[in-house]
Design a protein around this nucleic acid. Structure first.
Lengths: 256, 256
DNA sequence: AGGAGTACCGTACGCCGTACGGAGTCACTC
DNA sequence: GAGTGACTCCGTACGGCGTACGGTACTCCT
């Protein structure tokens, strides 16, 4: 599967696409387009949602739309820009109720932010595999940043720490979903279920995990495997979030 | 660039490779191998370190070794297994001094763990792009797990929480390195430096980030960009680690 | 009426992982 | 000592990928 990089194209063109800047005047020469950017992006998102980022190819998106592969390039400069547009498009789903992000105290708010990000990545797990070192600065990413900053506004924190906190919480969620989602992805990629894989692997682990070399792992591993493997995948998310919010509480408390 | 999945091969074969189980008796027919698994893995790691996971191809590794591409398949079942072996190989570099992980109090220990993981991912950033939902359970991953569990042993925590804490801390570090590293990766992939990219992007951001729609982002973004963009990339790591350890302190303290 | 710019898309290039089969080499059996 | 079978090395080829290039048909502007 692919890690796709966002923000790989020409910034001017990418920004124009993200913000849907009209190209010329209203009247452009040439045949009436049968296709537009939104339909391409929607098809690409459908595909990535259903089959993962590895299945996302220009040819496949074109086929799903019933057009030739090269037709896409009349509307989108390349795959990199398409990925930018996909990400900004699905980010629109976040925070349908904007008031919720500023409801209650800071702990409620950050919890809302974390849960919204969790739901987002569960719905669009391919977004986990995007390297957003150069984020697509579209309207919906802006909105997300704005709303998440509001969750930590008014606490007396310096601006830098507001940014750092938002990055910390959303980064944590990304990792937590990743841990769960990579197991699901592995099932699709290999065609082997988690149970089958572990059944095939466990005998070798048993041979190798001797209590002399690895006493702590031999003690903890089986217990953790049983309790976390069988249980709610949200458990490690909830555990981590509680620790994180407690830690943030120390910072927020001492500024008061 | 590619997200590679670990643990995609036949578990029996993968475990045999990871633990370097000799294949038959000592005397095998056929010509003396000019190549072996270790040399292949070393070449692959060198390549991924230098040029990233996207540059890692079977053909390229073979070329670097001066052999035909298909020769690799005499020693390694496929690229998936090679990636497993690469990861376990570089994990051997972690914790050269095992005593350090159990030195001092829990906070010192977890800080050591976090810093070791930071250094590891900085040295081998391609490891950030591996989906380890089915981890390669080789000797060095086992050792890592063992040592990191020891850092949180003896605190009176249940086994499950020991595992959860280790996952939380290492997951945080992975995210923190990722944030920094993805910018560096983007430079290599696009050939455009961070400064050039921002210079080209900033005018469009200025147009679009109006203080009416995005008041908080308009206030915080520039400050954060200036202080974090110019400064030490470790800053967000240190900030997050402090919050995380404070939060863990709440848990550890209340169990005492 | 004609030029220009556009949408659609067939073909092709250079990558990728790897299946297949052949040639050469060695340890073993008889 | 000849034969057998397993093994290493690897050339070729297949079906995928992103996308450069150029052709054709269409529509607007002058």
């Amino acid at each position: 599967m692919a890690t796709e990089f966002t923000g790989t194209g020409d910034p001017a063109r990418s920004m124009a696409l993200l913000w849907r800047v009209p190209l010329n005047g209203a009247a452009r020469p040439g045949p009436r387009p049968t296709l537009d950017v939104d339909r391409i992006v929607a098809a690409a998102v459908r595909l990535a949602d259903a089959e993962g980022l590895a299945a996302l190819s220009m040819r496949r998106v074109a086929t799903d739309l019933g057009v030739g592969a090269m037709t896409l390039y009349s509307h989108v400069p390349g795959k990199g820009e398409l990925v930018d547009l996909m990400l900004d498009a699905v980010l629109a789903e976040l925070y349908p109720d904007e008031a919720l992000v500023v409801a209650g105290d800071w702990r409620n708010r950050l919890s809302t932010v974390a849960r919204a990000n969790w739901d987002f990545f569960v719905r669009h797990p391919w977004a986990l595999h995007l390297a957003t070192g150069r984020p697509p600065l579209g309207p919906h990413l802006m909105r997300k940043y704005e709303l998440e900053l509001r969750a930590v506004d008014g606490l007396g924190l310096p601006e830098v720490e507001m940014d750092l906190l938002v990055t910390l919480v959303t980064g944590f969620v990304r990792g937590a979903v990743g841990g769960v989602q990579e197991k699901a992805d592995a099932e699709r990629v290999t065609g082997i279920t988690e149970d089958q894989w572990w059944a095939a692997t466990e005998p070798y682990v048993a041979q190798v995990l001797d209590a002399e070399r690895f006493p702590t792992a031999a003690r903890v591993g089986p217990v953790a495997g049983e309790e976390l493997g069988a249980g709610d995948p949200r458990r490690s998310f909830e555990f981590g979030l509680d620790r994180l919010l407690d830690g943030i509480g120390v910072l927020v408390g001492q500024k008061r």
